[in-house]
Design a protein around this nucleic acid. Structure first.
Lengths: 201, 201
DNA sequence: TTAAAAAAGTTGCACCGTTGCACTTATGGA
DNA sequence: TCCATAAGTGCAACGGTGCAACTTTTTTAA
């Protein structure tokens, strides 16, 4: 039999794989039902049934009903941090943030029917929009720190915190505005010009 | 007997006075209990009992549990709009918004024990912070419109929406930051400089 | 190998915020 | 004065969430 002794202590493990599978089963069942009948018309108990687990188990995997829908937010947050760190030579921080936001916009306006259905679910359910925004804002502190690093400012510099928060807020402004692309750009124009005249070289 | 015939059809009326009294009784009871034992440890039914009404009545006066705490948000919103409209000659819009925010900060950092107790209740209860922020943001569209008017821009100009939203967001940034005054000022520095280089004369 | 510790999952229940329904009472206008 | 309407009542129910005690699986160590 193969010797697994030196497998890293973290990633693989019979336990963790099963746990991940259960979690996935729950998320899948939830998303399927939500897409079929709408977020508000599907109950927790029903989702648990469909995934063949108890509601208690469901809540051990997800902090609440809304969390069932967003299972990849962490990656998106990390992606944003990278976009700032690995921006092209000479590009300003706010510009990098703008580019990232615009790229993401493109992603979500493609023709992939799955993505569109998901997006439609979210945008048509106020609770989900709020939740998404809320968790998105949790990236404020990490983003502020990256901005500070990239700009040679102290770790909790107020200006970098402000820029971080505003940048995270920009997509939400766009969504509420009739011309969402214009709104997004206007927001980043403000930030770019402001940052340029505020931050050190 | 006095003749009330030409009283405005709106304000006085035996019915409406009673209604206002009931509403006030509910809000008072709720606030008292919340301050005594904390927001999460007081139930709706208990508040209704203390105000001597049914829960049904309570919910006819307030849209939800959180709304019991904030009964003056509308005035604050109007106040902010006025601060922009009636700003001193030659003062820029973002500067007026900064001044207003700073003034409000002073109000809430006084020595009035009642105010402090209330503030403590809010800041120590995440749900309430979120709710307050949420309703505060409802001033985005009105504020954006005032900004547009004052700046000679079309009513739904993207830049004015962005500025409005960011200005409303600023206090929340400040709260999360160790040096809240500095954070507030940094945020408005960004907006002032950005607006100056973006907006028309 | 096996015993015990730890983690995943189950079952059942109860709480809380919130809503709907059918009903009574008070008020203001015709 | 009578009536339409609005305020308020009481109750039952629903959905999301948390708790406690218990069983099953997996890991760790003796």
């Amino acid at each position: 039999m193969p010797d697994d002794r030196n497998a890293a202590p973290a990633p693989t493990g019979r336990r963790e794989r099963k746990k991940a599978a259960t979690r996935q089963a729950i998320a899948d069942a939830a998303l399927r039902l939500f897409l079929e009948r709408g977020y508000d018309d599907v109950g927790i108990r029903e989702i648990a049934d469909a995934a063949d687990v108890s509601t208690t188990t469901l809540f051990k995997h997800f902090s609440g009903k809304e969390a069932l829908v967003f299972d990849q937010q962490d990656e998106m947050k990390a992606h944003q941090l990278d976009a700032v760190r690995n921006r092209p030579e000479g590009q300003s921080v706010p510009t990098a943030l703008r580019e990232h936001a615009l790229n993401y916009r493109l992603l979500t306006h493609g023709d992939d029917p799955d993505i569109n259905a998901f997006l439609n679910l979210v945008t048509s359910t106020p609770v989900l929009l709020d939740y998404q925004h809320h968790t998105w804002l949790e990236n404020t502190a990490p983003l502020a720190q990256v901005i500070a690093e990239e700009s040679g400012l102290p770790a909790d510099d107020p200006a970098s915190t402000a820029l971080a928060r505003f940048a995270l807020e920009a997509p939400r402004i766009a969504r509420g505005h009739p011309d969402s692309a214009a709104a997004l750009n206007a927001a980043f124009d403000l930030l770019e010009h402001g940052w340029q005249n505020t931050a050190p070289a």
